[in-house]
């Protein structure tokens, strides 16, 4: 039994990490089933995180695809996932997804600033007004998230998606004990950014 297999008997967080190493090892060896297992395990949540960031189904689906393509490409280059190091696939996926989402919204903001001409919307239709109000609020929340540090946005969104503190800590590469403090700072940064967005 090799070192990686032995480590499956360990308890707690180590099991997850070393199991990820085994999965990566199998993907490296061309085992598509292992890649598919990772995909099925994380697809919904990666999409959920990206949708919250970009707010558009098609774009979130494309970005989700890119995240998994990166995992695939990376796993096939054995030198980048070294077997003597511990890897955490979900942490890597959510970190890469957050970066991809941020790049998308920042790119969109630059294009928007460059290309957009504001046109007043329709007035005086109650149902439409309610919808417009909701959309404005969504836009402001997303814009505020885009203003704060990516790691802070990632923490807030992962907590909103019911990720545990341990999962948040792993994805953001911080000690589990510091997640509470970091969340508090992130919430404060978000509140300030949101206030600026809505002109308070």
């Amino acid at each position: 039994m090799d070192e990686l297999s032995n480590s499956e008997n360990l308890k707690g967080n180590q099991v997850t990490t070393l199991t990820d190493n085994l999965l990566l090892k199998r993907i490296e060896q061309g085992d598509i089933a292992s890649f598919e297992a990772v995909f099925h395990q994380h697809y919904d949540r990666v999409y959920g995180l990206l949708f919250r960031l970009v707010g558009n189904r098609a774009e979130a689906e494309d970005l989700t695809q890119e995240v998994f393509l990166k995992l695939y490409n990376r796993a096939f280059r054995k030198r980048f996932f070294k077997p003597n190091r511990e890897h955490n696939i979900s942490a890597w996926l959510y970190r890469v997804a957050t970066n991809a989402g941020y790049n998308a919204i920042r790119g969109r903001q630059r294009r928007w600033q460059r290309d957009t001409v504001l046109v007043p919307g329709p007035q005086g239709v109650p149902a439409a007004e309610k919808e417009v109000e909701k959309q404005e609020m969504e836009t402001a929340v997303r814009a505020a998230l885009a203003q704060i540090k990516p790691r802070q946005a990632q923490l807030l969104l992962m907590r909103q998606m019911d990720f545990s503190y341990a999962e948040c800590a792993a994805a953001c590469n911080v000690a589990p004990g510091s997640v509470g403090t970091l969340l508090a700072r992130a919430a404060e940064a978000f509140r300030q950014a949101y206030g600026e967005e809505i002109g308070e």
Binding site: F51, E61, L156, L157, R159, F190
Partner: peptide
């Protein structure tokens, strides 16, 4: 305060119409 912020972010959740393939 954290919970209030988390609650505020629920507006970003995908609706059934936003469900991916």
């Amino acid at each position: 305060e954290i919970q209030n912020t988390i609650d505020q972010l629920t507006i970003l959740e995908p609706t059934p119409a936003d469900a991916p393939r």
